[in-house]
Amino acid sequence: MTRIRVAAYVIRHRAVPELLVFDHVGMPEAGTQIPAGGVHPGERLEHAVLRELAEETGMRSASVIRQVAAEDTTTYFHLHALPTTPDAWTHTVQGQGDDAGLTFSCRFVPLPLEHPLTGGQDAWLDRIDARWTAER
């Protein structure tokens, strides 16, 4: 059975648009990533992306702007973060999923990115319309 996934381009606007990324604490080989994960059976994709964001980063204040792209089994979403969201934090994943107990170092980085994301996760960033990254 194919696993359906979602991924979150969480954008915060300050002087320039910034993207939320994270690294696995103690696992540098995992590379820099965006929040992403599996969709539960019967779960709406928009709900899944917000759930994955909360599970992996602890962030609960983002809002879904729109679907950006669907690639193979992963659907990418553009989300908006408040400008008052912290610059950086660590979060330990709770629950029963594959990431349970892992600690992620989360931070916002300016766009365009200096370095590519793991697994080509940045492939659809150019589809985010700059109008939607401005403060709202």
Score class of each variant (00 low, 15 high):
W89M: 05
A88C: 08
V64F: 02
P17H: 12
W89I: 01
A69I: 03
Y9F: 08
L102R: 02
T90W: 06
S61G: 09
T73M: 15
I4W: 10
D122F: 01
Y76V: 11
H13M: 14
T74E: 14
L117Y: 06
T73L: 15
H91V: 00
L102V: 03
F108Q: 07
R127S: 09
L50I: 00
E46S: 04
P28A: 13
D87K: 08
I128K: 09
D23G: 03
P17V: 09
L79S: 01
T85G: 05
L79Y: 01
E43H: 12
P112N: 13
M59G: 03
I34V: 15
D122Q: 00
T133W: 09
T133Q: 12
G119A: 11
Q121E: 07
V68E: 02
P41S: 06
Q67L: 14
T90R: 14
P28M: 13
G37K: 08
V16H: 04
P35D: 00
A36W: 10
S61H: 12
R3Y: 00
H13I: 11
R60Q: 09
L19N: 06
R44K: 10
F108W: 07
A88N: 02
R136N: 08
V21S: 06
H78D: 13
Q96A: 10
S63N: 10
A30W: 02
H47Q: 05
V93R: 08
A30L: 13
D87A: 08
R131P: 00
T85A: 13
F104D: 01
H13P: 01
E71M: 05
T74M: 11
P86H: 15
V10E: 04
D126P: 11
H24M: 07
T57P: 04
H91F: 02
A130R: 14
E52Q: 14
D122E: 04
W89V: 00
A48M: 05
Q67E: 13
A7K: 02
T90I: 10
R12I: 12
Q67N: 12
H13Q: 15
H78W: 09
S105N: 14
R131T: 00
T73Y: 15
V109P: 12
P41L: 12
Q94M: 12
A54D: 03
E71W: 01
G97K: 01
